[in-house]
């Protein structure tokens, strides 16, 4: 392609170096170039939250981020939560509370929850609902997701 840029990113602890077109979205880079299809794509304009992941520790919309902008960044996708055979605290809570049905929204929900646990007050149901307002779920009706978040009492990174 006409414009290609070389980028280096660390995804779930593994370093990658690739040439990408500047217009390639981070979501497509992960799904198409690296074959990490855990990051889901819904609306591609920032509204549904499905593509949310952790970049340098912050939750970001990967459909509103270019792969070139992630050069040098450390990314954690849903594939990077927990250890082999072991759930992260957030995953454990989602599992225990039946906080997913089809699972389409779950990767984005988990990234949102991990970041929100560190940055937002999540003590009341209202606070949890506000923190989740940017992530749409078409299955659960949200109640079980809210329940799950309220049971996570660890304030540290709930990833591993």
């Amino acid at each position: 392609m006409a414009f290609e840029k070389r980028i280096r990113v660390t995804v779930n602890g593994r370093a990658f170096e690739r040439s990408v077109e500047p217009r390639l979205l981070l979501s497509d880079f992960l799904r198409e170039t690296l074959d990490l299809t855990g990051t889901h794509v819904g609306c591609e304009h920032g509204v549904c939250g499905a593509c949310t992941l952790l970049m340098n520790g912050d939750s970001v919309r990967s459909c509103l981020t270019l792969a070139v902008q992630a050069d040098g960044a450390e990314i954690i996708t849903v594939e990077g939560h927990g250890k082999a055979g072991e759930f992260s605290p957030a995953q454990e809570a989602f599992h225990a509370c039946h906080a997913l049905q089809c699972g389409f929204c779950t990767p984005g929900m988990l990234a949102t929850v991990v970041d929100a646990l560190r940055k937002l007050p999540l003590d009341s149901e209202a606070e949890v609902r506000e923190a989740l307002a940017g992530n749409l779920c078409r299955c659960t009706g949200y109640q079980h997701i809210v329940d799950a978040v309220l049971t996570i009492n660890t304030k540290e990174e709930g990833i591993s």
Partner: peptide, 9 residues
Amino acid sequence: VAHLAIRNR
């Protein structure tokens, strides 16, 4: 303003 993930960037 928007949501945490959008406020981050």
